[in-house]
Amino acid sequence: MRKLLTVCLGNYCRSPLAQAALTRRGGAAVTVRSAGLIGKWQDQPANPAMINAARRLGLDLTHHRGHQITLEDLDWADDILAMDAAVLHTLHAIDGARNIHKARLYLPGRDVPDPMSQDENTFNDCAVTIEAGTALHLAQRRP
């Protein structure tokens, strides 16, 4: 079973959505976790606007609770998927060379824009972008 870790700044918007989308697409072939670089939303639900955007895609984020990244999370993952270049840079700084070979951007060559403090349409667009990106990590839908 492949282990994927999605990481954004706070584990409040983007990485929880990516976790849900990758879990749905990957089925039993993957285990997906998400985490944030900062602990501001530790143990808190996902952003309400992202919960709504997820619902529109048939995903449920109501059970999500924020988690601040640990070195154990990085060691656990087969692939570490950063939502933007700043997150990827910070992951490299946190972990040094130990897991650098496993970490990359969720969307090759570009950031998933952070929708925080934006309108509902921005959250919806972000969710669609993340959901579409699952195909880059999981070639086919599993039952």
Score class of each variant (00 low, 15 high):
L91Y: 10
Q118H: 13
M83D: 03
V112E: 00
N121C: 06
A53I: 05
W76L: 04
N52P: 01
W76G: 07
G58H: 14
T129S: 08
P115N: 02
V112M: 00
L71F: 13
L136R: 08
I51E: 08
A85V: 12
M116P: 04
R110P: 05
V87K: 02
G58R: 12
D78C: 11
T134Q: 00
S117D: 14
Q68M: 15
W76P: 01
D84M: 04
V128H: 02
G66Y: 03
A77L: 04
D125P: 01
L105K: 08
I100N: 04
A97Y: 07
H89E: 13
A139H: 15
H89V: 10
L136P: 00
T122Q: 04
D114R: 09
R110D: 08
A85F: 11
L61P: 00
T134P: 00
S117V: 07
M50N: 03
Y106V: 03
N121P: 00
H89T: 15
T70C: 03
A53N: 05
L61F: 11
A127P: 00
A77N: 01
N99T: 15
A85S: 09
A49Y: 04
Q118G: 05
P143W: 14
H101F: 06
D119N: 10
H67F: 07
A54C: 11
P108Y: 06
Q118S: 12
G58T: 10
M116L: 14
